[in-house]
């Protein structure tokens, strides 16, 4: 009693749709985590020693699963933004530490592409109150994009300074750049530059959409400068609080 039965052709409201999407993405994530952990165990020889061909296949599986996990992560973040599920949890954050960690985690990809990866702090960085999880998500997205769309032997640099009383982050690369005609769409959902699509099939086109929303949620601004075949620099600010 009390429950109204919905007709079979009932159209989902936006809220119902958003909840269903969340649930579906989470459901997708669980088997991916299971595959990732199993691949780790196999690579460690926990189910017996692998021959080189088996090890090679499991490494490829591990890479693919991590990639799929990253894509689902993007879909989840975008769905959260749209359903306004985002909640900031401010806490004192050591900016130097978080930047060092983000750069360190990108190092394997940079090494694979023989890229120079560096972190430059222009001033002594203060501890600020912000959400470390979202800041890290912003840094990871910008840095991995920079490395992904920069050819082998190129350079990626993260620098942090103080500008007009705010923290200014800059992620600079010597990559393929963003075509001028498409620059106004960079932060749009599912945007991928024509040259980026030619270079790699990786990516959902959600990274910069998520980054812009998170930076604004944290009280900052984001913009960029880019020249095709010369490189791109993304700048974003965070308030000192």
């Amino acid at each position: 009693m009390g429950q109204t039965k919905k007709p079979a052709n009932h159209r989902l409201t936006e809220e119902e749709m958003s909840k269903s999407m969340f649930f579906a993405y989470h459901q997708l994530r669980t088997p991916l985590i299971s595959m990732k952990w199993m691949a780790e165990m196999l690579l460690k020889g926990e189910a017996g020693k692998l021959n080189p061909a088996q090890e090679d296949l499991i490494r490829d599986l591990y890479t693919s699963v991590n990639h799929a996990n990253e894509l689902v992560g993007h879909l989840l973040s975008a769905a959260r933004i749209e359903s306004e599920e985002l909640l900031i949890r401010l806490e004192p954050v050591d900016l130097e530490k978080i930047c060092n960690e983000a750069v360190k985690d990108l190092q394997p990809l940079a090494n694979k592409k023989s890229q120079t990866l560096s972190f430059k702090k222009i001033v002594n960085l203060p501890i600020i109150n912000t959400d470390p999880k979202y800041l890290r998500e912003v840094l990871d997205n910008l840095l991995s994009n920079a490395a992904k769309y920069t050819p082998n032997k190129g350079a990626v640099e993260l620098s942090v300074s103080l500008y007009k009383g705010e923290i200014l982050f800059a992620v600079k690369d010597s990559g393929i750049g963003i075509p001028k005609a498409q620059q106004s769409r960079v932060f749009g959902k599912f945007f991928r530059g024509d040259n980026a699509v030619k270079m790699s099939n990786d990516g959902t086109g959600l990274g910069l959409y998520i980054v812009k929303n998170l930076v604004e949620l944290l009280g900052g601004k984001i913009w960029f400068e880019s020249e095709e075949e010369r490189g791109t620099t993304f700048y974003f600010t965070l308030p000192v609080r």
Partner: peptide, 22 residues
Amino acid sequence: SGSNKKIEFAQKFSILDYFVKS
């Protein structure tokens, strides 16, 4: 789930920690 809402809710009930599997 790494949703801040869920983390905040769980922390009200004296959990030791909250881990996001992925």
